[in-house]
Nucleic acid binder design. Structure first.
Ligand SMILES: [Mn+2]
Ligand SMILES: [Mn+2]
Ligand SMILES: [Mn+2]
Ligand SMILES: [Mn+2]
Lengths: 225, 225
DNA sequence: AAAAATATTTAGATTAGTCTAAAAATTAAT
DNA sequence: ATTAATTTTTAGACTAATCTAAATATTTTT
């Protein structure tokens, strides 16, 4: 398990993982370039390099998928990222909308033992401050069932478990409105005209626009956990 | 204060700081190359770059010194390094001989606020696990007076405050012998034959070789603090 | 099925940091 | 004060990662 990948290679693996989860198929050069804010030609170069290291499977013009090893590495970086986010929020008093950029750097620190020590110190959290599941030592993570707030049935008791849009702008917006992971939520009225929702959030009646409702995940309590 | 130096540039500044403190004069190209385990020619290149950024003062064949800004930056990286070391030992249950390499990476994480948050979380420690002083927010640090154990007067009560050799080998040795920062120490007999010392360390009589005595700093209690 | 549009790859340049070998400057020894 | 040894700089090459522009391939539209 002596990987020793560069900062850049690790970011490519993470990006491929994240994009392939959405579409559940090979990731295109252009999509990857978009995600990493670089040029398609640069992506081609790097994919070749990762393929040489057996971290991805790649055939010209066919897109790229993670190999078994590549996926394992990607997951371990995601684990590192999310644990650091928990640390920053729980112990360094950052808000959940402030931690992503710092975690982007911390996730690349190389050590055989660091992340497991951090995990223990944090008492093995299972979700990060944005509600995303944290893989354990072996790469397993909760796949709790969730749905968009916009799809939640009326009068169904639920709670906020994550965000679809994790841009700084959106997180800041939520923060201003006092909306956070773990908040209880129930839709009491759906306005058909503008698709806005009247909800009870932590016992307060609040209006939620369609745009927001489409970017908030809530727990789907029809299914266990 | 928008520095944005590379990992490498930061390491050069740290190395220049550390070498210039020892000799208290301009640092030679060769010494720097030795410290950074690189070639003199590479050092010349990098020094030029740092001089262009006004981080060092440099004239051909004359060695290099830190500018005011360069020194400030160097100190802030040292602050970061030492605070992370405290974190790793105090909260992630590492031993003091295990933390240096990880801190070498963590010290370079860029954030306006991270280190001050960490400092507060750690409750503003003034020394790191190796007994080295931690600069505060403004770059001030304790300059407690210390001397080598080999120079300590007989029967003088003192305590261990640091190491001169901070190689892994030496730290591991100390760890095995149960010698750590803060331990009380008193020399009861100096053997003239091999320059070994008989000392009382934490109320136990122990034999210390010259080699070890020359690499352990003890508090010089003749002077205040 | 050909043309047009889009996606991807190739070719060649660029930058940061490093390296080796050779040249020049400085310092030490005779 | 020459010569010799050492230190430092220059010159040129190399790798990783990126970029622009041009060349191919693929997909979509007609
Ligand atoms: Mn994040
Ligand atoms: Mn997150
Ligand atoms: Mn250290
Ligand atoms: Mn230290």
């Amino acid at each position: 398990m002596k990987n020793n990948l560069s900062y850049t290679e690790e970011n490519y693996l993470k990006a491929i993982f994240s994009l392939s989860k959405k579409t559940d198929s090979a990731v295109s050069t252009n999509d990857l370039a978009g995600k990493l804010v670089t040029n398609p030609s640069s992506v081609t170069d790097m994919i070749r390099k990762l393929a040489d290291k057996n971290l991805v499977d790649y055939k010209k013009y066919q897109g790229v998928t993670l190999s078994k090893g590549g996926k394992k590495t990607a997951i371990s970086i995601i684990r590192s990222h999310r644990l650091w986010e928990v640390f920053l929020v729980k112990h360094l008093s950052y808000r959940w909308d402030e931690v992503h950029e710092i975690a982007e750097q911390l996730e690349h620190v190389k050590s055989e033992t660091l992340i497991d020590h951090l995990d223990a110190f944090l008492e093995f959290p299972t979700v990060d401050p944005h509600g995303d599941p944290i893989p354990d030592k072996d790469g397993n993570m909760l796949t709790f069932t969730k749905k968009l707030l916009s799809e939640l049935e009326i009068n169904q008791e639920s709670s906020i478990v994550g965000v679809r849009d994790s841009s700084d702008d959106f997180l800041k917006y939520l923060n201003n409105k006092g909306i956070a992971i773990g908040n209880s939520i129930k839709v009491v009225y759906k306005e058909s005209f503008d698709k806005s929702l009247e909800v009870i959030l932590n016992n307060n009646k609040v209006l939620i626009t369609e745009e927001v409702a489409k970017n908030l995940f809530v727990k789907d309590i029809n299914l266990k956990n």
